[in-house]
Amino acid sequence: MTTDVGLTDVRTQGPPKRRRTRAQRDRLFAYGMLTPTLAAVGLLMAYPIYIAINLSFRGGEIADLQNLGQYPLTLGNYVDVITDPKLLGDIWRSIVYTVGVVVPAFAIGLGLALLLNKTFPGKRIVRPLALLPWAVPGVAVAAAFSWMLDGSFGVINYLLRSVGLIDANVAWLANADTAMTAVIIPTVWKFYPFFTLVLVAALQAIPSDQYEAARIDGAGPWQQFRYVTWPALRAPSALAIVITGVGVFREFDFIFPLTGGGPDDATTTLAVRIYNEAFEYFTFGASAAIGVVTMVIAGALLLAAGRSVREGMN
């Protein structure tokens, strides 16, 4: 609805010929505005991505990424990667991890945003504190959680035992059944404040007279949320979910220090696998091929992420 503003008002003004030049000028302007973004990304990402793609088609014992031309071209990496039964598991775990992080993080973020949008004493202190986990660098988050999830004397075991949720200590990071949960928890903790912040900003932008009008119409709290709040939050929510989802899908900083992808591959996502192939096994070609496959899958997931998300983003 807002898209063609530049063109509509021109249409009412000038003869057809002028209109075209104005449209062209607009387009030029639009691209001009986008150029710094594309330049910043293109400059530093185009060459690495090109190397990654080139690398994924190279065979032999690759040891020199600056001179890939010396290695033979091959589809072998892709054949190996795609026929490896482990790949499906890695994809599945990446999805589980991403959904497992984004859904609770969004729920916590939304709940907090609604709470922080109300007026109550001490709000000015509560609000920055609610965002605090975001301020902790990932390295420190991973270290803190590995300390707290310690299978013997970790405080999380102690608390859960105290309230009777578990009877005996759980070796969170060593057990294949609990390891995924154990890496999801710190990631959720680190990512929920972003949702809170974006949603608080969106809530603040809802004019209060809209609520008043709804109240006058006899709307209860749920109906107010349903018909006033949620429509205003939909677009920012969708955007924040996509941005976080893309970030989490390739996240590595929490899983690797906590489990290294173990136990027995239980937390090996595509991102961990890519790292292990390159930096633990020195198979750079396979690593790059998995990277390209990841890129394709993530792109496909993003496109298929549902109409509401795309609507929200547009």
Partner: peptide, 8 residues
Amino acid sequence: RMLPGTLL
């Protein structure tokens, strides 16, 4: 942004 930084 979908390629993990570790690969780039």
